[in-house]
Every structure is written in C-alpha cells, then in structure tokens.
Design a protein around this nucleic acid. Structure first.
Length: 112
DNA sequence: TCCGTGACGCAAA
DNA sequence: CTTTGCGCCACGG
C-alpha cells in the first residue's frame, strides 16, 4: 500500500456529481498539509485505473491547468458537466453546493 | 543512490 | 484583483 494507493483509495469514494479538493483528499489519505502529493498522484493516473480523477479540483473550485496535461483539463470539465456539475462564467465550481462530505468513519480513520 | 519533476494551499503584501 | 514565498515529497530513470 503506497502513498499514492491511499490517495487513489480516497478519490474512488467521491460520489458522482460531487467534488473534493486536493487538500481534502490529502487529509483523508492521512497526508495533512501535503496537497501537492495528491496532484502528483493524479498526474500519474492512467485511463484504465478506475479512479474518478475528474472529481478533484483545487481549493478555489477551479480545474487546475498545466501544460503537461495536454487538454485533459478540458476533458475534466466536460466529464464534470456530464455529471450535472455547473460551472460559473468564470469557470469555477460552487464548492458550497458540490463539495463532498466524507462519511464520519472516513474522517476518523484519517485522524488515526 | 541521486536528481528532476510536478493536477496544490495558504498567508502576506 | 495579482504576485511571492514557502511548506512539502513519492516516483521513475
């Protein structure tokens, strides 16, 4: 069970139509204060990995862009809109509405 | 073993 | 609103 495996484990539990932030996923994976690791992990996700990577956005409710992604950022937005998530004119998601509330059991597990 | 490489978050100015 | 600076580290070659 590698660090990245723990991250993927959390992401797999985000329900359709909801999103989590990188920081949130990091905490639930027992990596408080290390949100970058989540980004690094998602960067390595492959299409056959069964991980809904599109449901992870940054703390501002935006899809994070990077030259390295080569268009998958637009794919991410498309996938989310297909799940019913609405983007503002500024390209942002209302986290108050769509943020995933993880089950208490998961939170307690993260706190160890 | 060493090193380059990154989808972030937050506070301050 | 924007720009800095810093924390932080697994993974592949």
């Amino acid at each position: 069970m590698s660090t990245y495996d723990r991250i993927y484990e959390i992401v797999r539990q985000i329900p359709v139509g909801q999103v989590a932030t990188y920081g949130q996923v990091a905490e639930l994976a027992g990596l408080f204060g290390k949100p970058r690791l989540v980004g690094y992990a998602l960067y390595r996700v492959t299409s056959d990995a069964d991980v809904p990577w599109q449901r992870v956005v940054n703390a501002k409710g935006e899809v994070s862009h990077s030259p390295q992604r080569q268009g998958t950022d637009y794919l991410q937005r498309d996938l989310l809109e297909a799940e019913g998530i609405v983007f503002s004119a500024a390209g942002k998601i209302d986290l108050r509405q769509y943020r995933w509330q993880p089950p208490l059991e998961l939170v307690l597990k993260a706190e160890g």
